[in-house]
Design a protein around this nucleic acid. Structure first.
Lengths: 242, 242
DNA sequence: ATAGTCGATTTGTATGACAAATCACCGGGC
DNA sequence: GCCCGGTGATTTGTCATACAAATCGACTAT
């Protein structure tokens, strides 16, 4: 995971706290927050630090401050849903099943297209980065090493499209993979099961075969979703939204 | 266009000014900005207002402030490329051809998938919203009315996917359509030429035919890209990156 | 030559004050 | 009775100042 931007710096803690209250639904859209002085006191910080947090939350579309009125929580429609912090806050507590479905859908939209694009336009260096990540996955000894290399692989594919707008969607992929790691049942023996899928993607990108790469990525995602449904069914028997 | 968030409020102007300086390349990644006191003075605002602007720019990934060192412009890799402000700043001056290509690629990734998803999951209300937008396009008298209705149509399709993460990508679509409107040659007589394409998408979504909707959206984008290439070739003869 | 220390520089946070915008209440005019 | 405008209270927006904390570089002692 990247710097979650909330660890250090007083205002970061405040932002994190308020952001989670909003995203988790403890304060709902339409609600107005307590006035700054009160809020600052209850959070044990100065009005300065609080205001910096509110400013950033405002930039993320979570709230809107208006003079004379106060800071109002905005409707979810206005939230910057692709923001890394917002995504992280939504996954802070166990994410709901339908949110996981939405993350999977995002992967289905983004990654096969990215793989195809990468197969078309990759440079030698970009291919080398994907290969390096694949080797790291192959040689991973622990779950953490595997996870890091896996993220690196998917990031490298996005990077190989040469489209920085696509690459910015990595935060979504990262969140999706992260929840997958958390939710899916993995043991020391099977955590490398998706290595062949990755290899097919790598090969297709190496050989510059866009449609092969797209299909390979699609089946990798489908497989990981099936794995997820399996774990899900085990913990709580619910409808599997086809 | 939506509230560009920079019009009112002192700090908004400062953010806009600095953001454009960075995105336009007047200050490059790796550069450190002048110290806050100096910068505040040169922009005619207090250090408070300047710092709020810097905080938001930092949230957008454009800069990083470190105590004792200063605010350093980050590498483009860290920029929040999907942020509505960042996109707007990149289009403030005439966007480069390769950036336009990237916007088109994003549309090709996002919108056909969204149309297919909408055809699968749309509710009656969501369909009604798309129909309303289509009617507005049909009855548009001026270019502005058409533009507004067109944006509304594409937003409604994203909304009909029921996936708020997909809908957040509207800022990208909005920017792409905006540059298209700016760059493409349109006259009073032909600005409705894409109406049939929109109708096909609408019909497919109405009939819940995902693959038909996907294809229809694909051909709409291909057509608009062809139109763009045409205008482009007219103004400056350059290579058409297939 | 190297490690440690000290001072200069710059951002981070706190505090207090006032300006500007908004809202709720109240009173007068029709 | 109802609408309109004024007025004061409330809350955020901006400013100025001060000091704490972190960083960097140069100097010194060994």
């Amino acid at each position: 995971m990247r710097k979650t931007s909330a660890v250090r710096s007083l205002y970061g803690h405040v932002m994190h706290e308020l952001g989670q209250r909003i995203v988790s639904g403890k304060v709902k859209p339409g609600d107005v927050l307590p006035r700054e002085e009160t809020l600052a006191e209850s959070l044990q910080v100065s009005r300065t630090a609080l205001r910096e947090a509110l400013k950033v939350l405002s930039a993320k579309g979570l709230i809107e401050s208006r003079t004379g009125v106060g800071a109002r929580v905005l409707d979810k429609r206005h939230w910057n849903q692709l923001d890394a912090d917002v995504l992280a806050w939504r996954c802070a507590s166990m994410p709901t099943d339908d949110f996981v479905d939405k993350l999977v859908e995002m992967r289905e939209v983004i990654e096969p297209a990215a793989a195809a694009s990468a197969a078309r336009r990759r440079t030698a260096e970009q291919l080398a980065a994907i290969e390096a990540a694949f080797r790291a996955m192959d040689q991973a000894q622990t779950l953490d090493e595997w996870t890091a290399a896996d993220l690196q692989f998917h990031d490298a594919v996005l990077h190989a499209t040469g489209n920085e707008l696509l690459q910015s969607l990595f935060s979504v992929v990262e969140t999706a993979l992260g929840t997958f790691f958390t939710l899916s049942a993995r043991t020391a023996s099977n955590f490398k099961y998706s290595l062949p899928h990755h290899q097919k993607v790598l090969e297709a990108i190496r050989r510059k075969q866009p449609e092969v790469a797209r299909k390979a990525m699609q089946s990798m995602i489908a497989d990981s979703q099936a794995n997820l449904q399996h774990s899900r069914g085990r913990s709580s028997r619910k409808k599997a939204t086809a």
